[in-house]
Nucleic acid binder design. Structure first.
Lengths: 106, 106
DNA sequence: ATTCATTATCGTAAAATTACGATAAATTTA
DNA sequence: TAAATTTATCGTAATTTTACGATAATGAAT
């Protein structure tokens, strides 16, 4: 059907789009500071309403970068290392390739 | 002024947003295959109109990931390794941090 | 059984993104 | 000088994103 772009191109774009908002970067960074799976108080960390934070969490969850587990009335969000590793292995080759490039336009 | 997010959070978000479209990923990958600074024919590589490609190039140039140099009636676009390196040094610590994490929600 | 706390979803408005054709601007070529 | 080539910008429409308050849904505690 949609063979305009490669699967990798679409995957990279989707993952980058998921991180393409300061609030979602902040969420990821916050989750990385938590040794246990403390969640919910993400709302207190951000200058946004509860419903907006919920939307951002949904965007991160949609691509799998984070994971949500219901525990009672609360939901525990955490980083999903598997998808981050996939992301890393798609973007790192680009970083490496770029390093071999000279800045050809002076 | 805007102290809601750190400069790093905003920078990461802006850079990711610039890559958050399959066409722009394709442009970057195409530029990486060119040893010389061949440009312009990027339009032929993509299933998009000339004006749309120009818009995508503008988005990448805006954050500095690529660079455009006028040479006659043509414009030469190329990767800017400096900004890519900055991007790498902001996102790599996150990859590294993630690797130390277990998938706490089973 | 009610109330409280937590989170997702709905409805909605404003802003941004994406795409195109048409056109302008700049330079080369004839 | 005139015509052709290349690229950016303008105008515009459709879609998506972002944000909020209100509300629903779930489970805990009283």
């Amino acid at each position: 059907m949609n063979d305009s772009y490669t699967r990798t191109q679409v995957n990279i774009a989707d993952l980058c789009k998921a991180i393409a908002h300061p609030a979602r970067v902040a969420i990821v960074q916050y989750l990385l500071t938590q040794s246990a799976c403390v969640c919910g108080d993400i709302v207190d960390e951000l200058p946004l309403s509860q419903s907006t934070v919920s939307q951002h969490l949904k965007a991160l969850k949609k691509v799998g970068l984070i994971q949500g587990t219901v525990s009672g009335p609360k939901v525990c969000y955490c980083i999903n290392p598997v998808v981050w590793d996939e992301f890393s292995s798609m973007i790192t080759p680009i970083f490496n390739e770029v390093e071999t490039k000279l800045n050809c336009c002076q």
